[in-house]
Amino acid sequence: MTGTDIPILEVSEVTKTFGGIIALNGISFHVKPGEILGIIGPNGSGKTTVVNCITGFIKTTAGDVRFKGRRITGKPPHKIAAMGITRTFQIMRPYYSLPAYKNLVIPLFSPRARKTGGWRGGGKLGDRDTVSIDILEEIGFERDSYVPYKITGTLPTGYLKRLELARCLALKPEVIICDEVFSGLSMSEIASMVPLIERLKMEGITLVMIEHRLRELFQVADRVMVLNFGEKLVEGTATEVMADERVKAAYFGSEQVEEVMKHA
């Protein structure tokens, strides 16, 4: 096994039940450093629950999550984030009453950001407001416009989704788990997000992307995992997954599969 083959994130036999509902039933998968893993599945198949279990926002009923070989199951969310595993929220959670750039002051206040210096920081954290605006600019907020200074609640969805990502980046993470960052965006907005995702990958950040927009996901993902009713259906490259009969039957409208295949 070479160094890069050791998984950065390893989920083994994770089960989560809510009362009688089995949201996750013994899910196992791994993510290699620097790769992009896509997770797809119908609504209610347990995708967000997987994110919550990895990042500590809910307690797993059974099973283990490991980060670089270290067990992180049961750790509180802020400790897991401090280790370098960050997440976005499907239902966006910005600080609506603050100006956009002030949203990043909070992650930049954390011990991890003080140590790492923020996304681009070389170990020393500058003035938090300045670093915030730098990060926002890199992620697509026009610096010389009024946008970074506007109250977050007045920004359109496209910016809010970027802000979710920016909150992760402020911690200089090793892993970002994106819970549907493309949903709710227009075609052109998604098109402008794709290069950003590719850039993060180039920088060596490991990404887990939960998406419904298959075409854009398959464009960036190295591997894809399909969830259905809390169980892993298949896992493989985009083409392998698309070709799988169970996937076609269980999840996709066959038209959508064909359309995606044409572009793949």
Partner: peptide
């Protein structure tokens, strides 16, 4: 101050504060 901002963030949205590696 920035600390005051963190307090307000805890009030607004404590899940996001947790996700920011901050101990609420």
């Amino acid at each position: 101050t920035d600390l005051g901002l963190v307090f307000r963030a805890v009030k607004d949205n404590d899940q996001a504060v947790r996700a920011s590696a901050m101990n609420v």
